[in-house]
């Protein structure tokens, strides 16, 4: 009787730890993979071709407007300044010109640092920083990284979280008032 109880207890403890272990594996390894879906950009855009090949810099396409707002990604209009016709031989360019430019459809780029509508972000106010302080350094790469989308929230995995914004603001002594960033 005593023995049986002891063994049962022992087995119980074992089962308990198996449960804990399984949870930890699922929680730390499976879950982070399952929660994101992977998406690829609509066009296999190469920054390298533009930066190294054509000698362009970030501001050539990602421009500021006169009123201090940031244009973000270039529109067809801007791209067409060079790409009115197919210039090279790349498949990507051909796709762009045929599928987007000629059809007058803007490219639905996936923005890694996408912030939701409730955030007001002024690039002008952050002009002193390097682009790569926040954005992935794609300027010299031939391929675009995979875009990870959170299945629950719909956010990009690389979207800066509020605490990150707040931490930097605190470090540089900028206000962390709600309305500094929200709208």
């Amino acid at each position: 009787m005593e023995e049986k109880r002891a063994s049962k207890q022992c087995g119980g403890v074992l089962a308990f730890f198996i449960g804990v272990l399984a949870s930890l594996v699922i929680g730390w390894w499976v879950f982070p993979q399952v929660i994101y879906s992977q998406k690829t950009q609509p066009i296999d855009f190469s920054h390298k071709v533009h930066v190294e090949g054509e000698g362009m810099d970030c501001e050539s396409c990602h421009t500021f407007m006169e009123d201090g707002s940031f244009a973000g990604l270039p529109s067809n209009e801007q791209c067409a300044e060079c790409h009115e016709d197919i210039l090279g031989e790349s498949k990507a360019e051909e796709t762009y010109v045929n599928e987007y430019l000629n059809k007058d459809v803007e490219v639905p780029w996936l923005v890694y640092q996408y912030q939701p509508d409730n955030v007001y972000f002024s690039h002008m106010a952050h002009k002193g920083f390097e682009c790569t302080d926040c954005h992935p350094d794609v300027g010299n790469s031939d391929t675009l990284p995979t875009y990870y989308e959170n299945r629950i929230s719909g956010y990009s995995k690389q979207t800066m979280k509020m605490w990150q914004c707040e931490r930097c603001h605190a470090e540089v002594g900028t206000s962390n008032a709600c309305y500094v960033c929200h709208k």
Partner: peptide
């Protein structure tokens, strides 16, 4: 219309 304030600040920075 708070974001108009933010816009005005951006414009001031730009200028």
């Amino acid at each position: 219309c708070h974001s108009r304030l933010m816009d005005a600040r951006a414009r001031a920075r730009a200028e």
